[in-house]
């Protein structure tokens, strides 16, 4: 009978994944289903380039699988995944020069969504590119990945207070950049 892996805890899934039997594939799939959206959101918003984000995103899960099979450090799964993603993204950004896409201004508008939200989202995405990376990353980890301040602090290697401060400062800067738009929105 097929197991319902969605009820399993992360630890149990990791145990199955390491067991190297037929169930390990199902366990990996369940972990992927649980956390792929967060990892993808992190990669895409940190790199702000879909193609690069796709490459890093796949690499994150491949490395995760390899690490788990080899020697999984006892930690929480989403945090571990984001750490891998962060390392890969930082390495990638370090190796890569500043990139400016002259015509890369396509606006992604999901037809099923509120247009105003899409427009605001586009502005937020643009604003994220204009703020310092440390603030941007903290904001993404908090708002996109819903990590706690403790987790953010651990991933970024900073104190919890510092993590809170970075998230708040990021929000302030984003609001500052979006101020004209937000004012218009409030007056509607």
């Amino acid at each position: 009978m097929r197991q319902n892996y969605s009820t399993y805890s992360d630890d149990k899934l990791i145990f199955i994944l390491r067991s190297n039997n037929e169930e390990s594939e199902a366990a990996f799939t369940e972990i992927y289903n649980r956390y792929s959206s967060k990892v993808h959101a992190y990669c895409l918003r940190v790199l702000n380039n879909l193609e690069e984000a796709e490459d890093i995103f796949q690499e994150v899960f491949i490395r995760f699988y390899q690490r788990v099979r080899a020697d999984y450090p006892a930690t929480n799964v989403p945090g571990f995944l984001i750490k891998i993603a962060r390392n890969l993204c930082l390495n990638y950004k370090r190796d890569k020069m500043n990139t400016v896409s002259i015509e890369d201004n396509d606006v992604f508008v999901d037809s099923g969504k509120n247009y105003e939200n899409s427009e605001l989202l586009e502005l937020i995405t643009t604003a994220l590119e204009l703020i310092d990376f440390e603030y941007k990353e903290a904001f993404i980890l908090r708002e996109y990945d819903s990590l706690s301040y403790n987790e953010i602090a651990e991933i970024c290697g900073i104190t919890v207070t510092n993590a809170k401060s970075r998230v708040f400062r990021a929000k302030l800067k984003i609001k500052e950049i979006l101020n004209p738009y937000l004012k218009d929105m409030a007056n509607k």
């Binding site: 967060k38 990892v39 999901d110 969504k113 509120n114 996109y144």
Partner: peptide, 17 residues
């Protein structure tokens, strides 16, 4: 602030591999 949060929640492009 709610609008910003809602907009991010609706970022289907980011949340959908």
């Amino acid at each position: 602030q709610i609008a910003i949060k809602e907009a991010i929640k609706g970022d289907s492009r980011a949340f959908t591999p």
